[in-house]
Design a protein around this nucleic acid. Sequence first.
DNA 1: ACTTCGCTATACAGATCGGTATACTTAATT
DNA 2: AATTAAGTATACCGATCTGTATAGCGAAGT
Lengths: 202, 202
Amino acid sequence: MDGRTGTAGTATVRRVTLTPGARRVLAAAERLFYDRGIHAVGVDTIAAEAGVTKKTLYDRFGSKDQLVVEYLAGRDDRWRAFLIGRIDTAPPEPAARIVAIFEASRDWTLANSAKGCSFVNAHAEIGPEHPAHTVITEEKRWILALCTRLAGEHFPGHGERLGRELMLLHEGSLVAYGLTIFPDALDLATDRARALLQTGNA
Amino acid sequence: MDGRTGTAGTATVRRVTLTPGARRVLAAAERLFYDRGIHAVGVDTIAAEAGVTKKTLYDRFGSKDQLVVEYLAGRDDRWRAFLIGRIDTAPPEPAARIVAIFEASRDWTLANSAKGCSFVNAHAEIGPEHPAHTVITEEKRWILALCTRLAGEHFPGHGERLGRELMLLHEGSLVAYGLTIFPDALDLATDRARALLQTGNA
DNA sequence: ACTTCGCTATACAGATCGGTATACTTAATT
DNA sequence: AATTAAGTATACCGATCTGTATAGCGAAGT
């Protein structure tokens, strides 16, 4: 996948050349931003964690804002690629693919999102004027569109409604897991999605 | 309700005397913290917005961390009082009371939470070591316990599972609304909750 | 051979951060 | 009449913030 224009890509193009130093900066930023929050982490900390000078960081990314964009766009890329891989290897029936979404989300979240959805968390810290804001909203619209399309194939005429209902379960499970409200949130959401697809409107 | 020990109260006690100045500080902090995020707002900004000197702010609250605690505890108090009022005036049947929760959440959110749940958003910014962390988790556990209890009265033996499923819908709707993924999230969650209570396990 | 690229090292700028100190005022309490 | 509480005004502290400047180094490309 070149930049962000592939099957899973968005309109946001990768603006930075990922030199070895830039890669380490991005890796450090992803960890620190997610764990501690965007505003709580300074560029000095990121540079130190990456074992890189601040000049390298600014030569590659130009600003902290842009680094935030790359942080979210990078997670977006990897998550979409992961999800698409799971969907492609799932049975072709739309219901099975929807279930595959929830199972992929569970596995991804267990491995990468102990504090919940990184996009939701970033949204809490930045306003609409921030260049990373569209990355957040587009990611959510993308999953919604995916759920809606598959739900429409499964239950023609009810794609819109079912897609949104699936999104409620999906986003709810990430919050419940991230805030440790209850432990089995990710599996519970999968169960509920399955039930929703069987009855259509129970 | 005295402090935070009433019907809707938690273990967190109000540690500050709410003098007129302190009230304006808290009002300004609530608005700024919610709109811009906790780390993005400085104490100077809050004091200026409240029309108060920084000394007054520190005389009343002692630290920014404590002000964050009061911010979240205050929202918690008002939201719980609002919700309990709605539940008390709803029909006594547990199903009707659960629906009342979702309708109350919708009305409260429309009036106070354009950017989604303030506790979820705060959780994105602070770690477990922050004194406000327990305010967040206790608020979520409280609603979960409330849903679980009512769901158990409605469907004996299935309170735990139904309560959690209701929480998925509730938290999901706040995210979907706060990130404007789709506009009717709050009403849709109410519909889904109603359906869930009718079939029990559809 | 010369230039460009990616990088280190260090120092610095101006602003803002959370928090404190000092001195004064005003109103209510005792 | 003396004290206390709640407040203003202002100045300051050291730390940290984002971002820039200067100088140099080694490897790769032309």
